[in-house]
Design a protein around this nucleic acid. Structure first.
Lengths: 239, 239, 239, 239
DNA sequence: GATGAATGAGGATTCATTCAT
DNA sequence: CATGAATGAATCCTCATTCAT
């Protein structure tokens, strides 16, 4: 297998490469599986496809994951980096206005999660959650809850500081989440949400949504009394 | 054939029962299929389940729909009532402020679509759209495009009348759509979006979101200058 | 059902037509079934097709034949006119040469059987005989045996009268049968036997085959000694 | 991997067993399929039966042939050895009389095709040809046409050399083909052609038929004048 | 470990047969 | 009698999973 006419370090190199390959295997499989599950759905994805995309043979997948469902679980588990502790700390130390905190929060989420393949997990959960209640519960516990809490803390800070109106917190959180979900679905569900052939710039969308949203959170009084709302103030234009 | 001791309308009733049954069958099957496709996904739903839920046997489904995929197409087609013409007219005649128009629009959508089983189609398209490009295209053409256009018209009216700021229309439309998608996913994807064990009141959520959103659309000037950023909270400063 | 404003004889006419129709039903079904069984094979023929071709509904077929297999049996039974008694008599009384008798026999077979839809039965038996041993046995008993016997009698007469050589009777009979089978397969199995796009004129073919065959039966001595066979007699041409 | 206490060729043998198995599989499947298709017909043959007869399980068949129809195509393709080039050459070099050439041709056909399982293909085409026009066309092109041409060349040689009368070539070719088809149907369609419980010796039948046929081809003058119509049998008179 | 041939349970689809009208 | 809607057994085909090499 390792013919002796090759120098020893070649052997080592080969062995090393193989080993690295071997250790990288599960990760490559998980990446392939995530992509395919998100793209085609769990049932419609064949194990052989996963193997092929990861560059191994059918049997090898079962060497690392005992079943298709376990592969799915691993995919979800693997792609849920429990970074909420870190993020919470980051936001606790945030010095700027809460408006900026929220905006920062959403943009950071996009860069660190939304823009990565990990965001597929959310679409996956939307599509398949009902078929895998325990995975869904895990996701709920590991992602939904901490995520909502994080946003809620930000909004609470804004209210506490008098920057925001005392809006219904749950609803406000959902508003932020809806914005994120929209971005995810835009990315992973074709034009299911976008105007035909429209390319959405996530940063611009987030900025735009956050702007409207923050104005909504900051403004006081009934909507009807808003300065820009009156016909006699038609010139009201953003800066 | 028609023994005289039985009243004629009894026969008619009997004769009609079978006939009415036959005419009702496709609808019952479509309802069952929609529910199951939304709940479990297209591939994970067995034709026999559809049949069972509609109270018939396996073979009967194929009496009305030549294949599973055709059943899906029929489900989508059936549940996309092209009511946009009517809605457009309704909004053209709308007398109140555009704020009210938008709020009315969202609430009406919920009552007429979101709250009905038809809303499942959207989740279905999110989940399966990529696997059925032609159905997705149909949905895009029949629902997404007209829907976006409708919302865009409302927003445009607000801007034209000086009620709203001249925001980026596409992004604003997406904001409204995101709100609706969130409601749909809350309904059809378990707690995939909501706080654990949270029950969302759609009307309240829409009211709340619309309120924030409309304030955001109406307010003028940079966010930092918003009146609600009260003087007693000087900490709110931009970086 | 029979409105009284119609003259009585109209009713009678209708009733009569219906009755005739009713009595004709089984025959029409058998014809339709024979055609389809021959064309597509037994298994590949759907009962509904048979019904449709006979102009009745699916259920009606089962009113006349309890099952598909019984329909097949009836088709075979119906199309085997046991005319061999009559034919035997005809040949017993035949006055001409045995050569003519054989030729007459083959041509008559073509006109009375080969050219009719009844000839399909033979192709049917070739194709499906193994799947229905009892039907095959029936066919063997009712058609093959009497048919072979008939031909054998003719050939025997030729030998007895010194018109033919004393050839092996079985083999000679098979030669005649082969000619008939060839015609049947040409008719019912597309170009499975014929040159591409070739139209075979059965009468001409029978005449030609009978001619060769009869010369072969009549000629004496070893083949090598045949007058036309020698190079010095190249001009040997038919009359 | 290769423990030294076992002789190397043992490993090789083992390794080869699986491999040889794999390479033999398609052939075994094709053999099983041919037998069953011929015996029971295409539609009446279940894939599982094919698998069972080949000693494998249901799914394995689909490992080698993507569908039942493709299996049929492969069966036909596999069993049509395009040996006509070789045969044509053989006959071109044939030194004896054309009578001998024709006889040789028919006997060789029996030994090389008729007596082998490949002959089942013809029965298959007779039975199923109409349901598979493209396969039938392939068969027509690869077998019927070259076969007819081959026979025609032999007959033409006989006529050119003055050994045969100038008969209608097409009809004469069909006579030879009919003889072969008869043998095939005798073999593959039970007693559909033979006298009850009759065992046909193909060589004897071919010899007998060829003898009659060749006499018929060689003899000159009208049938009625044939020498064997001996004077002591004056009754043999044309109409 | 890695491979891919083999398996067989599972699901879509067909169609002979039944039966209420 | 005639109809055609309904049934469900039978069959093709897929694919997760196993296992010999």
């Amino acid at each position: 297998m390792f013919p002796s006419h090759l120098p020893a370090d070649t052997h080592q190199a080969l062995a090393h490469k193989r080993e690295r390959r071997k250790e990288a295997r599960p990760g490559e499989l998980l990446d392939a599986a995530l992509d395919l599950f998100v793209e085609k759905g769990f049932v419609a994805t064949r194990m052989e496809e996963v193997a092929a995309r990861a560059g191994v043979s059918k049997g090898t997948v079962f060497l690392y994951f005992p079943s298709k469902e376990e592969l799915l679980k691993a995919v979800v588990r693997e792609n849920i980096a429990g970074r909420f502790v870190e993020w919470n700390a980051e936001l606790l130390n945030f010095q700027g206005s809460t408006s900026e905190a929220l905006k920062y929060c959403m943009l950071a989420w996009w860069d660190r999660v939304g823009a990565t393949r990990a965001s597929g997990i959310s679409k996956l959960m939307v599509s398949e959650g009902r078929n895998f209640p325990d995975i869904a519960a895990f996701y709920q516990h590991e992602v939904i809850e901490p995520g909502h809490l994080l946003i809620r803390r930000v909004l609470q800070r804004g209210i506490d500081r008098g920057e925001f109106r005392a809006v219904d917190l749950d609803h406000a959180v959902y508003g932020v989440v809806a914005c994120m979900m929209f971005l995810i679905l835009s990315k992973h569900s074709m034009g299911m949400c976008l105007k035909q052939d429209m390319n959405l710039d996530p940063h611009a969308y987030i900025a735009s949504q956050a702007d409207i949203f923050l104005r909504g959170l900051c403004s006081a009084g009934p909507v009807a009394d808003m300065p820009a709302c009156s016909p006699q103030n038609p010139g009201a234009t953003p800066a």
